[in-house]
């Protein structure tokens, strides 16, 4: 299969510093930089995403945390779980704040005002703080060729404020701003933005982008390491199921994250220098209805609506060269 390419002309070649991949779960470092001392919900997958990211990044790291669950639940009562520096940013401006941190370290090292090594500079933003109100700052950070990593942990809603719809909320999902009703029976009628493609297509300085899932921790950690080793701005989009927001039992997060990949609701791939590489390709795609059935937020969906969601997923997979067989016909408009 011809490799798909994504992104505008990128005249500069990718530059990757040496880094140490983690070969197996047994080799995962044991020194944690995201430690107990937070009050995220039971089964919180975004918190696990943070922990895995911090593990992979190591001690020479600065985190910026835009407002969202991973701000509020992590820093209650003036304390936080990080063993590395962390700064709050507004939900609007994570990308801009890390741009400033990156510019400061570049200048201070050049001018002899800082004698340490250039740190890993990571923004850990929610889907709203990335794809919605934070999109402008994200774009600026990706555009200006700073050396930094922007991570979107995606729990598909504004969860901190009580589960409101975001551009990443899937079609058909219930949120408190998209309740299903007589007039709008499918709850959220829109399909989500494709944030990674948006970043990839329009930002020539970005040489490495990856999706990841908390259910695939090794893949996630190695992508973090690689993203940090690549010179310039890099972007990661991490799928992180939310028991409270999606309405499933707290222990089922890892299973549901995996199911998302197996149904094509989420896809694990990376884009390196414009080349798309799919990391996990199930032998046979499971139907979306298996995924939908695990979560209360989809409980109002009719077969027809599920079919509509399946058609969207089929098209998304086809776009990545992952044709589902046979393609699902788009359901006719209900009469």
């Amino acid at each position: 299969m011809a490799q798909a390419r994504l992104g505008a002309q990128k005249p500069d070649k990718i530059e990757i510093a040496d880094y140490e991949p983690i070969r197996s779960m047994r080799n995962v470092p044991t020194t944690e930089y995201y430690v107990p001392g937070h009050r995220t919900c039971g089964g919180c997958m975004p918190a696990l995403a943070y922990r895995l990211t911090a593990l992979a990044a190591g001690p020479n790291t600065v985190f910026a945390g835009p407002t969202g669950c991973m701000y509020v639940a992590n820093t209650s009562y003036l304390c936080g779980p990080w063993a590395v520096p962390w700064i709050h940013t507004q939900i609007t401006n994570g990308g801009a704040v890390i741009s400033g941190i990156a510019a400061a370290y570049k200048a201070m090292i050049r001018k002899g005002k800082y004698d340490g090594e250039y740190p890993n500079i990571i923004c850990f933003a929610g889907d709203g703080g990335s794809s919605d109100i934070g999109l402008q700052a994200l774009s600026g950070a990706m555009y200006r060729n700073h050396d930094l990593l922007f991570i979107t942990y995606d729990n598909e809603a504004y969860a901190n404020t009580g589960i409101q719809v975001s551009p990443m909320t899937p079609y058909g999902a219930y949120t408190t701003f998209t309740p299903p009703g007589k007039v709008v029976p499918d709850a959220k009628p829109l399909f989500p933005k494709d944030l990674l493609k948006m970043v990839a297509a329009g930002h020539p300085a970005v040489k490495y982008l990856a999706t990841a899932s908390v259910s695939y921790p090794l893949d996630l950690m190695n992508k973090v390491r690689k993203a940090l080793a690549v010179k310039g701005p890099t972007f990661m989009h991490i799928h992180a199921p939310c028991p409270k927001g999606w309405s499933f039992e707290a222990h089922r997060g890892p299973e549901i994250g995996k199911l998302a990949v197996e149904t094509g609701m989420w896809t694990l791939y990376e884009i390196e220098d414009g080349h798309v590489k799919v990391n996990v390709r199930p032998r046979k795609w499971r139907p979306v209805k298996d995924y939908v059935a695990t979560q209360g937020r989809f409980s109002h969906l009719t077969d027809e609506m599920i079919q509509r969601l399946q058609a969207f997923v089929d098209a998304k997979l086809a776009d990545l060269g992952l044709e589902a067989e046979p393609p699902t016909p788009v359901p006719p408009v209900a009469g």
């Binding site: 700064i87 401006n93 704040v97 400033g100 510019a103 400061a104 370290y105």
Partner: peptide, 18 residues
């Protein structure tokens, strides 16, 4: 990318010690 970003960038830079 705007004044909001201007103030955000200098916030981050100042926090880093610049």
């Amino acid at each position: 990318e705007g004044e909001h970003a201007q103030l955000s960038v200098v916030l981050g830079a100042s926090a880093a010690g610049a």
